[in-house]
Simulated scan of single mutants.
Amino acid sequence: MKAFDSPSAWDKMEAYDSTPWAAADDTEEACAFLAKIAEGGPALELGVGTGRVALPLTRSGVAVTGIESSPKMLEQLRAKPGGAELDVVLGDFADVPVEGEFSLVYCVFNTFLLLLTQDDQLRCFQKAADRLKPGGAFVLQTLVLSADHYGHEEWTETMHVGADEVVLLASVHDAAEQRVNRQQIVLTESGPRFFPMSFRYAWPSELDLMARMAGLTREERRTGWDEKPFYYPGYVTVYRKTA
């Protein structure tokens, strides 16, 4: 379904960062972790979006380059303080269309899963590895479906309840393709709004195999940006290029 293959959901959001049910709230933790991994070297963000992570990471002293496929998200980034100066390439991050070498390549908030085929995800691993310096790290923040969802072909759930809006998620699951097509439905007094999107989840062992095929080795996997050990459904993985 082509409506789910495009970044139309993000293009419809006029103020992504101030949309409470859309934006992540782990920016400070993510930046602290990524700055430590980067060790002062340059970093590349895949799917930089509105610069939620890239801009504060730059202010911490890490030179960040971004790749973004949505012109609307890029407009929101450029409107922020420091956004006009951030080096961003408009393009498909599966191809990693930038030059140079980086100490860190990273992709946060499940953005990697917006690559909707295994081939695209593997290509991204390989291209990211090509851009890493020896000893550099590729960091992914991803998820897999919970046991409650995996056994179902479809489900609907409440994502957000506010004083003047309710957000519902209506999802259809293709287990063979590991793909979820989802309609994010925002109900307000002025009527409903629809934000279609799709993602392809990858199992942790599958990501590890992609990394090995790209010449990377898993260094650690944890639940989030803190020291908690890995547990489903969301997690952060660090892959390392041989020094």
Score class of each variant (00 low, 15 high):
residue 8 S to N: 12
residue 57 L to E: 10
residue 184 Q to R: 09
residue 128 A to M: 00
residue 95 D to S: 12
residue 74 L to Q: 12
residue 226 D to M: 06
residue 137 A to V: 02
residue 75 E to D: 10
residue 215 G to E: 00
residue 197 M to D: 14
residue 227 E to N: 15
residue 73 M to K: 02
residue 149 H to N: 12
residue 239 Y to I: 04
residue 21 W to E: 08
residue 200 R to Y: 06
residue 74 L to S: 05
residue 90 L to V: 11
residue 182 R to K: 13
residue 228 K to F: 04
residue 171 S to M: 07
residue 242 T to E: 12
residue 219 E to M: 11
residue 177 E to T: 09
residue 188 T to H: 02
residue 195 F to S: 07
residue 78 R to E: 01
residue 85 E to T: 12
residue 142 T to Q: 10
residue 16 Y to A: 11
residue 14 E to F: 08
residue 37 I to V: 15
residue 23 A to P: 06
residue 92 D to I: 04
residue 129 A to P: 00
residue 44 L to P: 01
residue 63 A to T: 05
residue 54 A to N: 04
residue 208 D to T: 03
residue 158 T to M: 12
residue 29 E to I: 05
residue 84 A to C: 07
residue 52 R to I: 04
residue 241 K to A: 03
residue 237 T to Y: 03
residue 157 E to K: 15
residue 108 V to T: 15
residue 76 Q to R: 09
residue 104 L to Y: 05
residue 49 G to I: 07
residue 71 P to S: 09
residue 46 L to N: 05
residue 79 A to D: 09
residue 50 T to H: 05
residue 111 T to S: 14
residue 108 V to L: 11
residue 145 L to A: 07
residue 184 Q to A: 07
residue 97 P to C: 13
residue 124 C to H: 04
residue 9 A to V: 00
residue 49 G to K: 09
residue 24 A to K: 06
residue 218 R to Q: 07
residue 54 A to D: 02
residue 80 K to C: 03
residue 61 G to L: 02
residue 64 V to L: 04
residue 50 T to F: 03
residue 233 P to I: 09
residue 126 Q to R: 15
residue 216 L to T: 01
residue 119 D to Q: 13
residue 87 D to I: 01
residue 191 G to T: 07
residue 31 C to G: 05
residue 26 D to Q: 08
residue 197 M to W: 10
residue 232 Y to N: 14
residue 164 D to T: 10
residue 228 K to T: 13
residue 50 T to D: 04
residue 127 K to R: 15
residue 229 P to S: 08
residue 228 K to Q: 11
residue 87 D to Q: 14
residue 231 Y to T: 14
residue 60 S to N: 08
residue 64 V to F: 05
residue 114 L to E: 10
residue 164 D to G: 12
residue 119 D to P: 02
residue 37 I to N: 01
residue 21 W to R: 08
